[in-house]
């Protein structure tokens, strides 16, 4: 599987480390229902058959986190974007 890194271009998947689901958001630890929402956040995952959004870290390349849209049935990559814009605005 090749992942088109927004900075480096198409790279072999073994250059990346996989984190997982990019759709979950860390809950507010001060909220009254924090225990339940953290249980969901840490343990419960959907298992979609089809397009999925996930985090990959380009460890052997530009060392950036990349949000990858991947079809879990075919491994087709539907799109990638950097998790954050460079610190140097439009350098």
């Amino acid at each position: 599987m090749r992942i088109p890194c927004p900075y480096c271009g198409a790279r072999d998947a073994h250059e990346f480390a996989y984190l997982g689901d990019a759709t979950v958001t860390r809950p507010d630890p001060a909220a009254p229902d924090a225990e339940d929402t953290f249980f969901d956040y840490v343990y419960l995952r959907d298992n979609p058959a089809g397009p999925h959004s996930e985090w990959w870290y380009h460890a052997s390349g530009c060392r950036q986190w990349v949000r990858v849209a991947r079809d879990t049935r075919t491994h087709a990559i539907l799109g990638t974007e950097l998790a954050r814009k460079p610190a140097g605005d439009a350098a």
Partner: peptide
């Protein structure tokens, strides 16, 4: 060389 936040254009 790592650009400081917001300093990319001036750095270039």
């Amino acid at each position: 060389l790592v650009a400081r936040r917001g300093a990319g254009v001036r750095l270039a």
